[in-house]
């Protein structure tokens, strides 16, 4: 079970692709969205969401096909966002230290 809800629904949609006419109709309504295509209100949101899950389903299908061909899906090559965040925070700290070091040099110049 993935913690990505969209991915979960996409997987569900993929396994029910041929079954649900109501869902297909919602996807079509969602795809033709915009002021002309949607009636508005909460139902319009559900249609929009269904269209987006359908897009995710297509991506999932492509990823599964790629994996079947022995390719590594792009998403799995991405680096860990938490690790990236730590890298940024360390780099930001380095920037602050650069600034402080420069300030110390200024003080030395002023005193000297």
């Amino acid at each position: 079970m993935t913690d990505d809800v969209m991915r979960f629904f996409a997987a569900w949609m993929l396994t029910h692709e041929a079954a649900d006419e109501g869902l297909k109709a919602a996807v079509l309504r969602g795809e033709s969205g915009g002021p002309e295509g949607m009636g508005g209100g909460p139902d319009a949101f559900v249609d929009g969401l269904a269209a987006m899950v359908a897009e995710e389903k297509e991506r999932l299908k492509r990823a599964l096909e790629a994996r079947a061909r022995g390719e590594e899906p792009a998403a799995e090559r991405d680096s860990d966002p938490a690790l990236e965040e730590i890298r940024f925070e360390v780099a930001e700290l380095r920037g602050r230290l650069d600034s402080i070091e420069s300030l110390l040099e200024t003080l030395v110049r002023k005193i000297g």
Partner: peptide, 20 residues
């Protein structure tokens, strides 16, 4: 350009994700 349309994928996805 329709600025509201550019917001649609973000809002829909984030609210979809929030269901979890």
């Amino acid at each position: 350009i329709d600025i509201v349309a550019t917001a649609q994928p973000f809002t829909t996805r984030i609210l979809g994700q929030a269901m979890g």
